[in-house]
């Protein structure tokens, strides 16, 4: 199992630094009540987010289903948000409606002029979720190996050029999808198409179970109290590329295919399956297609 695949000439390569530039879906909130507004609508406890730190949070609808996942940057006098690709509009609408007449918050879309770089297997060490600033570019290590940079387009372009010169690989859209499938990462297209529940897609760290009400909390609290999920996220291989959506498993059960990609003759998929059959190495059949679970997330 590759721990950090990148795509070079359509072949998987392990342990290569790779990156992807995203040039939309950034918002900035300005005003003294920005954190309070975010706190009221997100799954995470935001009101006490320390200066110069980041946190992930999900935005849910009232059925507990995701409409966005955001990376929130507390830049002291401003709050920056990186949305999932294509999910910013619904979140901005929700935030705009959530600002009461007593609150001072301005929500500004930065869909042009600013970009982010997501740098995978960065080999950089540092404090996770702590923001550093270099020139106009803000950077944050969001886990042991993923570094996110945020800034004006000219600086981000220069940054990506430097990465390329240092030997990093610029992921195309297929390379990014492969990376996401192999690492159990939910992208904007999956959220827009399937609106998964965060607990089902291994995003329980996005959720504060002590903060109280937020949109969709009733559903999440009930699922958590019951302690049993009906679906869980897995990466699995298959002998053919799979159509997205629900498939019947031979012998009983279903798998919901969220993404499927062909990489040099091997097919990798991200899907939701019942936890009882979600263990690594479990094999199952989908109407003459053999599948094998690689990772349970």
């Amino acid at each position: 199992m590759l721990t950090n695949p990148a795509v070079v000439d359509n072949h998987l390569v392990d342990f290569m630094t790779s990156y992807r530039v995203h040039s939309a879906d950034i918002s900035v909130l300005i005003g003294p009540d920005s954190l309070d507004v975010l706190h009221a609508v997100t799954t995470q406890s935001i009101s006490n987010l320390s200066d110069n730190t980041c946190t992930f949070a999900s935005i849910l609808n009232s059925n507990g289903r995701m409409i966005d996942r955001i990376l929130i940057w507390n830049l002291v006098d401003q709050i920056a948000i990186i949305h999932l690709d294509g999910c910013s509009e619904s979140t901005r609408k929700l935030l705009s409606k959530s600002v009461s007449w007593k609150q001072e918050v301005k929500i500004i879309p930065l869909d042009s002029g600013f970009s982010s770089i997501w740098q995978y297997d960065s080999q950089v060490t540092g404090e996770i979720m702590s923001i550093t600033v270099s020139g106009q570019v803000h950077s944050c290590l969001i886990d042991e190996s993923t570094l996110v940079h945020l800034g004006p387009n000219p600086d981000i372009n220069q940054f990506s050029l430097n990465l390329k010169n240092d030997g990093a690989i610029s992921l195309d859209i297929e390379g990014l999808r492969l990376y996401q499938i192999m690492n159990g990462i939910i992208n904007g297209e999956i959220v827009r198409n399937y609106q998964p529940i965060p607990l089902e897609v291994a995003l329980s760290n996005d959720i504060s179970f002590t903060k109280g009400c937020y949109t969709g909390q009733e559903i999440i609290a009930r699922m958590d109290a019951r302690g049993a999920l009906s679906k869980t996220l897995v990466t699995f291989s298959s002998t053919r590329i799979l159509d997205l959506g629900n498939h019947r498993i031979v012998g009983g059960g279903r798998v919901m295919v969220l993404d499927s990609i062909n990489n040099n003759g091997t097919h990798y998929n991200l899907g939701l399956i019942h936890p009882d059959i979600a263990d690594e190495g479990v094999e199952f059949e989908l109407d003459e297609i053999s599948c094998s679970i690689l990772t349970k997330w």
Partner: peptide
Amino acid sequence: MGLIDGDAFALPMAIQVD
């Protein structure tokens, strides 16, 4: 240091409330 400077207050809002 914020992402955008003080001129940001003149930038258009995401959505105007009806």
